[in-house]
């Protein structure tokens, strides 16, 4: 493994580190709040994995978030070309069928780019777009994560009301005494 590939995969290293950190906290911590925090870090690592996979970098061209610029050009873009989808698709002039078509290419091509890095030829494009889909997915996952955390915290509040502690071993001790 050359240093280039090592550092080229830096986002994965971060993901793995975060994930293992979070996992370790979940396993090792007896404090319920800390466990939940560990769980959050654990989840965050996966969010990062998704988001970084959608992000493009390119030494030459400008890479941006998938937001339409200008918007009213008459170049319809060359759908059949390899490489990234071309800018300035004019949505208004397309029938919905063509829209599907466009989305199809954007979808497939962008993700390919996300995976393989920016190794494709980019003769046509002036601007590259990052793949928006992973970010969208993570929006959902973050909501799920928040819900989980909220629920976990609510449960911990109830546990503290019942036991007067949030240390797992103390709780188990209390239960043993009861029996």
């Amino acid at each position: 493994m050359t240093p280039e590939t090592f550092f080229g995969l830096f986002n994965y290293w971060i993901v793995i580190c975060l994930m293992m950190t979070g996992f370790y906290i979940v396993i090792s911590s007896g404090n319920l709040i800390k466990t939940v925090i560990g769980l959050n870090i654990f989840q965050t690592s996966v969010f990062l994995l998704y988001i970084t996979m959608g992000k493009l970098t390119d030494p030459v061209k400008r890479v941006t978030a998938p937001i339409l610029e200008g918007g009213h050009g008459d170049s319809h873009g060359d759908h059949s070309a390899h490489g990234e989808h071309v800018a300035q698709v004019s949505f208004e002039e397309h029938a919905s069928e063509q829209l599907h078509d466009a989305v199809k290419h954007a979808h497939a091509d962008l993700s390919e780019a996300g995976h393989g890095g920016a190794e494709h030829a980019h003769e046509v494009a002036e601007v590259l777009y990052s793949n928006p889909l992973p970010s969208v997915l993570m929006l959902t996952a973050i909501v799920v994560g928040i819900a989980t955390t909220a629920l976990a915290l609510a449960l911990i509040v109830r546990i503290r009301e019942d036991y007067g502690t949030i240390e797992e071993d103390e709780i188990l001790e209390l239960d043993k005494e009861l029996q």
Partner: peptide, 20 residues
């Protein structure tokens, strides 16, 4: 949650491979 997150991670990797 650990299970679901593992599952999510797997989905992410599959998406990276296939783009769908």
């Amino acid at each position: 949650t650990i299970g679901a997150t593992f599952f999510l991670l797997g989905i992410g990797l599959l998406y990276q491979i296939t783009g769908t």
